Amino acid sequence: MSLLLAACVPSNAPPRPSAPPPRPLPAAPPLSVSAQPPVRPLARRDQPPADLLNAVQALGVSFAGQVGISIRDVDDGWAVGYNADLPMPQQSVSKLWVAIAVMDAIDRGTLSLSDSVTVRRSDLTVFHQPIRPLVGAEGYRTTVAALLEGAMTRSDNTCNDVLLWKVGGPATIRRVLAQKGVAGVGFGPGERVLQAKTAGLEWRPEWAGGAGFLQARANMSFEARDKALQRYLAAPYDGASANGITLGLALLQKGALLSNASTVHLLTLMRASKTGPLRLKSGLRPGWTFAHKTGTGQELGSLATGYNDVGLLRSPSGHNYAVAVMISSTRRPIPARMQLMGDVTRALIQAVD
């Protein structure tokens, strides 16, 4: 039985070892997150469209796997979902919460986007990390802004973990989420420990970079790996509900989590994401925009876990929707998973457009 590689990697765009260093985006412009050209005002809708309720239910029931779906109207407040309160593996979706904690620290003046950071070989993680070839014997000198761009637009695991520990580690992320009222969202132990534990291993510092971890995992029996993976799926160490995630996204869009400048900067990064172009984004119509974060978990044989996409969808009229599709586990191939996600977007747009 073959063991496939994992996790937090864009399925349709394998990393290139010669990737250039991530560059910080320009400073966020001093404008409101809702600032847009004048648009035609829409009548307020207090209840979700019946067609959308039916479509979400049908999509969830018909998909062969464990899936959670949540759609939340940011402006009017209604929500629809399927399995939307069940904790699901987040995988790289959790980079969003690290980014929020980083921008919160910037708002409080304890961190700056221009702060210099040296990434060392001991900081390297596992799986997708385009920054890895840049980290030499003396390390790689970069900035908080560049690390944040790498984490949010290319889902770089090392960039994210360096930022995680820069702001104080998992306990800080959990505290920020609690303080800001983002209920239904947990946070795991960090990339290296999470992936090792999911595979039934205990992380070793000498595995930094991933090769040692991959070898140790390959030496495990299928039965041992399956037992560890099933334990993770039953109670994900990084679990969050689809409803919890759309709540956090809605609060972000409303400006309730961060300052205006920090909100604009983070949403700009999310709109520039290079991962998952054929997931939720595949269902967009012209004029609609999407700011998002993907997640991709480990696979064992034909079983895929933590295949996710979450984000903020904006209509041509300026109306905002938070969307989360989280596939906890499935044996369906990647095109079928992408089709489900695109169908959720298409159902939403058809129901409200």
Rank of each mutant, 00 (worst) to 15 (best):
R337T: 09
I69K: 00
S18L: 12
A261H: 09
R44C: 10
D309F: 10
L252I: 12
M270F: 14
L163G: 11
R279L: 15
L42M: 13
L25E: 12
I173C: 05
L300W: 01
P38H: 11
D309H: 08
K274N: 12
G150N: 09
P130V: 13
V117K: 00
V119H: 05
L313G: 10
L247A: 14
V126P: 00
P10D: 14
S241C: 06
R175H: 06
R141A: 14
M220S: 11
L303P: 02
G210K: 03
A240W: 12
F127Y: 14
S32T: 15
A99M: 11
A146H: 06
R45D: 04
A101W: 02
I69S: 02
Q57H: 15
Y307R: 03
L340Y: 06
V176P: 00
S70H: 05
D123H: 15
R192K: 10
K180G: 07
G200R: 00
A171R: 13
V135T: 09
L247K: 11
M103W: 13
T246I: 07
P24T: 03
P14M: 01
V67A: 09
L86K: 10
V33K: 04
Q195T: 13
P20E: 00
L3K: 03
F290P: 09
L313S: 10
L233K: 04
L201Q: 05
G248S: 12
R108T: 08
L258M: 07
L313F: 11
I106E: 00
A304G: 12
V323T: 13
R72S: 12
L280G: 11
R23A: 14
R108M: 03
P130D: 10
P133N: 04
R44W: 10
E206W: 05
D104R: 12
A291E: 13
I173M: 03
I71E: 03
S262Y: 07
E191V: 15
S317W: 14
L111I: 07
R72P: 02
V144F: 08
S70F: 10
G311A: 09
L313D: 02
G301K: 02
S221I: 01
P205H: 05
P130F: 14
G181F: 06
E206C: 04
T296K: 04
V162Q: 03
L251G: 11
V344I: 14
A322H: 10
A178H: 10
D73L: 02
R44D: 02
A99D: 07
P205C: 02
R279N: 15
P236H: 06
A211C: 01
L249F: 14
R231W: 01
G65R: 09
F213Q: 00
G168V: 11
L251Y: 07
S259K: 03
I131K: 03
F290W: 15
A58K: 11
G301D: 01
L4T: 06
A145V: 08
G244N: 08
E206N: 06
L269Y: 08
A101R: 02
F290A: 09
W78K: 03
I131A: 02
T172N: 03
K281L: 12
S112I: 03
L111E: 01
L163S: 11
V264N: 06
G212T: 05
I173H: 06
R44G: 06
L266T: 11
L284T: 10
A6D: 09
H128E: 04
P87L: 13
L233S: 04
V167C: 01
N54R: 15
G136Y: 08
H265P: 00
T172P: 00
T153Y: 09
R332V: 13
S34W: 14
N12P: 00
R279W: 15
L124V: 08
